[in-house]
């Protein structure tokens, strides 16, 4: 394990495993090679990323530089690290990362049986972003937790959340809840008239012209029996 650099897909994003030994610059070069290689195959823009450092001591500047590169060069969102070495953990906490002693176990209630996808780390489950504004055409909003908007989401706008989406207003644009794969995610709007709704990997579009007018009362979209269903709230 100590000599291996690994880039793995997680249910909630990416896991980067770095070896416990070997010179740091070489590790970085190796990681970048792996990332470049995987870049062509995987779409991970905005993916929540966990960094497994094992018991390797990493200084705060080193860590800061690596995090900056992951964000800047690869569009990743570093969220957590796994580190056993205390000073490394201290540095990570200064950088606002969630810290684990060892790889966290998967939630018991969720069963994901995919061999190539190891267990997901636990991210702050109730991390919500509240915005009081209108999201207009051409604007894209992405958040790694729940998203609550007090205002309209206009046609041509796109909102993406790893958790639920709640709109106190008219939702006319494209909304994607559970973007990291959570099929339990829901989309709620006081006036649900979206161009398209996506939950996890499912997509539903608004009916073409000629369909009955959409309800003006609050509605909720969620996955039932493998399909997106819309029902009154």
């Amino acid at each position: 394990m100590s000599g291996e650099i690994a880039v793995k897909g997680w249910r909630n994003g990416l896991l980067l495993v770095l070896p416990s030994e070997g010179p740091w610059p070489e590790v970085i070069t190796g990681l970048e090679g792996k990332l470049e290689e995987a870049k062509t195959k995987t779409f991970w823009q905005g993916a929540q990323t966990t960094l497994d450092l094992g018991d390797r001591p990493v200084s705060e500047p080193e860590l800061e530089e690596l995090i900056g590169r992951l964000k800047g060069d690869y569009g990743l969102v570093p969220m957590a690290i796994v580190a056993a070495y205390a000073p490394t953990r201290e540095g990570a906490s200064k950088l606002g990362l969630t810290i684990h002693d060892k790889l966290p176990a998967l939630e018991k209630t969720e069963k994901v049986e995919k061999a190539e996808q190891p267990e997901a780390p636990q991210f702050p489950p109730n991390n919500a972003l509240y915005l009081r504004q209108t999201i207009r055409s051409g604007q894209r909003l992405q958040h790694d937790g729940h998203l609550v908007i007090s205002g309209d989401v206009n046609a041509g706008a796109e909102i993406v959340a790893a958790g639920d989406i709640v709109v106190f207003g008219t939702l006319r644009g494209v909304a994607h809840a559970g973007s990291a794969g959570d099929e339990g995610a829901r989309i709620i709007a006081t006036n649900l008239r979206p161009t398209q709704i996506r939950i996890a990997s499912l997509i539903a579009r608004s009916p073409d012209a000629g369909a009955p007018p959409l309800s003006k009362s609050p509605e909720i979209a969620s996955i039932k029996d493998g399909e997106i269903h819309i029902s009154p709230l």
Binding site: R136, A155, G156
Partner: peptide, 12 residues
């Protein structure tokens, strides 16, 4: 109107 909405967003 769609484009106007885009413009308003940029102006804001």
């Amino acid at each position: 109107v769609r484009d106007a909405d885009r413009i308003v967003g940029l102006l804001e």
